[in-house]
Amino acid sequence: MSYEFDFQAVLQHWPMLAHGAWVTLVLTFWATIAGFVVGTICAVIRTGGPVWSQRVVAAYVEVIRNTPLLIQAYFLIFGLASTGMRLPIMAGAVLALVVNVGAYTTEVMRAGIESIKSGQLEAADCLGLSRRQVFMHVVLRPAMERVYPSLASLYVLLMLGSSVLSAVGVEELFGTSNRVQSATYRNFEVFIVLGAVYLGLTAIMRATFWLLGLVLFPRRRKLGTPL
Results as ranks from 00 to 15, higher is better:
S2C: 00
E4F: 09
E4I: 10
Q8E: 08
Q12L: 05
H19N: 01
T24P: 00
L25A: 11
L25T: 11
V26Y: 12
L27I: 10
F29T: 10
F29I: 13
T32D: 13
V37Q: 06
G39Q: 11
I41D: 01
C42D: 08
I45L: 14
I45Y: 11
R46F: 07
G48C: 14
V51T: 03
W52P: 00
S53P: 00
A58P: 00
V63C: 08
Q72W: 09
Q72P: 03
Q72K: 03
F75Y: 13
F75C: 05
I77Y: 15
L80E: 07
G84W: 10
V94A: 08
V94H: 07
L95N: 02
A96N: 04
V98R: 04
G102R: 03
A103F: 12
Y104G: 00
Y104S: 03
T106H: 04
I113M: 13
S115C: 06
I116T: 08
K117C: 04
S118L: 11
Q120H: 12
L127M: 14
V138M: 14
L140W: 14
V147D: 06
P149I: 06
S150I: 05
L151A: 06
L151F: 15
A152T: 14
L154C: 10
V156I: 15
V156F: 08
M159K: 02
L160W: 12
L160Q: 14
G161Q: 09
S163Y: 04
S166K: 03
S166F: 11
G169Q: 03
E172P: 01
E172D: 10
T176H: 01
R179I: 14
V180I: 12
N187M: 12
V193A: 13
A196D: 04
A196V: 15
T202N: 04
T202D: 05
M205V: 03
W210V: 02
W210T: 10
L211R: 11
L211Q: 08
L211D: 03
V215S: 00
V215M: 06
F217W: 09
P218A: 07
R219E: 15
R221Q: 05
L227A: 01
